[in-house]
Amino acid sequence: MAAQTVTVEDFQKEVLESDIPVLVDFWAEWCGPCKMLSPTIAEIADEADGFKVVAVNADEAMPLMRKYKIFSIPTLIVFKGGEVYKQSVGVISKEEVLDLLK
């Protein structure tokens, strides 16, 4: 199962107002490294316990890209209590992604 898709319109509700941590994957269809990271994100989404995993299509979310100063993708951001907790840019291992949630 893939991460839940989140748009600019529902980002506030699904991410910022979430009562559990949220791992957000900013990606794009044309992005090779995003495609490399995608299976890892899907695996983590399937195993998520105590957090949720969502995906934001960067091409369709320019206001979010600007707000969070995302200049390269894939970018992973963990939000806790509506605030940026940790962030990573580029392809990383499953263990490194899970470390972001700690």
Rank of each mutant, 00 (worst) to 15 (best):
Q4N: 02
Q4M: 12
Q4A: 09
V6W: 13
V6A: 11
V6E: 11
T7K: 14
T7C: 07
T7S: 15
T7N: 13
T7V: 03
V8G: 09
V8A: 08
E9Y: 12
E9G: 11
E9H: 12
E9D: 15
D10H: 12
F11D: 15
Q12P: 00
E14V: 12
V15W: 01
L16H: 03
E17T: 08
S18K: 05
D19N: 02
D19T: 00
D19S: 00
D19I: 07
I20Q: 14
P21C: 04
V22D: 01
L23T: 02
D25V: 01
F26I: 09
A28T: 00
W30V: 01
W30P: 02
C31R: 03
G32F: 00
G32T: 08
G32S: 05
C34F: 05
C34K: 00
M36A: 01
L37R: 00
L37D: 03
S38D: 08
S38A: 15
P39C: 03
T40H: 10
T40Q: 03
I41Q: 07
E43T: 11
I44T: 01
A45S: 06
A45C: 02
A45K: 00
A45T: 02
A48D: 07
G50A: 05
G50E: 08
G50W: 12
K52G: 05
V53E: 03
V54Q: 04
V54I: 08
A55G: 15
A55F: 11
V56L: 10
N57T: 09
A58M: 01
A58W: 10
D59M: 02
E60S: 01
A61Q: 10
P63M: 00
P63W: 00
P63S: 05
P63G: 01
M65E: 13
M65V: 15
R66M: 15
K67T: 13
K67P: 09
K69L: 09
I70D: 12
F71W: 08
F71R: 12
S72R: 15
S72Q: 14
S72T: 14
S72W: 11
I73Q: 04
I73P: 04
L76F: 10
I77S: 08
I77Y: 07
V78E: 14
V78C: 13
K80S: 07
K80N: 04
G81D: 15
G81Y: 14
G82M: 14
G82F: 13
Y85C: 01
Y85G: 05
K86L: 02
K86W: 07
K86A: 13
K86V: 10
Q87S: 14
S88P: 09
V91H: 04
V91F: 15
I92C: 01
I92A: 10
S93E: 10
S93T: 15
S93Q: 02
K94G: 13
E95N: 13
